[in-house]
Amino acid sequence: MTRNEVRNCSRHALLGKAIRALLLSTMLAAPVVSAGADEIKPLRLCADPTNLPFSSDDPGKPGLYLEIGQAVAQKLGRPVSTTWYKSYFGKRTVRETLLSKQCDAMVGLPLVDDFMGPAVIFSKPIAHEGYALIGAKDRKLTGIDDLRGLRVAVQYQSTPQNLLALRDEIRKVTVLSPDEGMTALEQGKVDVAFIWAPVAGWLNKTAYNDKYQLVPTEGAGLLWETAIGFAKASGALRDEVDGVLPSLQSDISALFAKYGVPNGAAIKFGQANQAAQAKEPVTVGQVTSDKPVQTAAAGGGDVKAGRELFNGTCAHCHGPDAVQAERKIDLRLLKKRYADDMESTYWKTVHDGRPAKGMPAWKDVYSDDELKNVYSYLLTVQGASD
């Protein structure tokens, strides 16, 4: 073989090695690209780690809402991840998880018009939740008249407490929680408990061996629909979830039964007490006020709409109806604090927020017209704490 032939063979050998190396590197890289393209994002659920029967970080007892979320994710063909946050912060929990894009969906939010304003959108209803009468299984519990002469446990500042307020023939025993109401029933201190049904049902199943009957009640402030909540920018995900919910209804009903939460027919309740209800003060959150709601425009906005939006979104930090004992976040002092700069300070704060102090920016959540309504409402409460 000549020297030129040797050179040509060497060139061919090197070229062959280069081609094989290129093919090998392409084969190795291909699965990585494919995996990235086909990766399925998890459905991120907001949940409380210690809030049975609704949710728990115990894999053996994940809770009603978490299991519903898992069933939805399975239908969508998506894995699940969980963002844990204590739910006793109420609407602040929604703001700091769902509205802060820490999670995608929150199961079990009340499907009511004034819940977090337009910032939260909802799926189709998944169930009904509310208050129930709990008593011995042989006791007749078909309406308010069956409570005459009985001792009835009612939760502090709840609809049942207001409903029975003027019924002198019913002895009311105030309790602070469903747990306390069930304990009073078990200890014979009351004859009936008129308390929050989901927790009462869970306790009846797990702590009292289904000893008591639970009768869901229906009436103003007693029963409402619940749904899955999403941030308003997640309309496409909401529509996906709505598409699979009808096929999950039997599974959801089974989960309610599993956790002892009543989800059946409710008795009409409260109609007999219309006169008493008409005399009751207006209750917002934990604050009771006899003061009429102002509806006239102030500051160019709708005061009534502003109050509803304020109590739905801002009240968890600044207090229902802006009643707040902590002066630095008492919005009834804005005029006193900022004088002629009150309006400009308000707009800068709600538009840009004060992240270092826990105040989010609302300009991408609410329109300026909606924020103007809130400002108009705040004008009506200035000086109320002086």
Rank of each mutant, 00 (worst) to 15 (best):
Q155K: 03
P79E: 08
E343V: 07
P216A: 10
G358H: 11
A356Q: 09
A193L: 09
L163N: 05
Q102S: 01
V173S: 11
E218H: 10
G358L: 11
V215S: 14
D242N: 13
V244A: 11
A105N: 04
W84P: 06
A278G: 14
V287T: 11
K372S: 05
D330H: 09
L237V: 06
E308W: 00
T159R: 08
G130H: 03
D341H: 14
P355D: 12
E129W: 12
D239S: 03
G306I: 07
S344P: 07
V199S: 08
G16L: 15
G221N: 06
P355W: 05
R171D: 10
L163H: 02
S376Q: 05
Y88N: 09
G188L: 06
T283F: 09
M1S: 11
I40E: 08
K137P: 02
Q102C: 00
G301L: 01
L64N: 07
V32F: 13
R171C: 07
R3L: 14
A30T: 11
L164V: 11
A227S: 13
L22S: 14
R354T: 15
Q70V: 01
Q213Y: 04
P281T: 13
Q213D: 07
L98C: 02
M106L: 14
Q249L: 06
P125L: 15
K372D: 03
A278T: 10
A265H: 10
T174F: 12
R151Q: 04
A305G: 07
D321Q: 07
L331V: 14
A276H: 12
T2N: 15
W224S: 14
F310I: 03
I134V: 15
Y208W: 03
R337T: 14
L64Y: 04
D179L: 14
L22A: 15
V72L: 07
P360C: 04
K372T: 12
S10H: 05
L214H: 01
Q286L: 05
D145P: 05
V192H: 08
D191Q: 02
Q286T: 04
T380L: 11
I68A: 14
G358T: 13
I144Q: 08
Y85E: 11
M359E: 11
Q70T: 09
S10A: 15
E280C: 08
L222G: 00
G77W: 06
K140N: 07
Y212E: 02
L24M: 10
N273P: 00
C46F: 04
R44I: 01
V282P: 00
L255A: 02
A29S: 12
L24Y: 04
K75M: 03
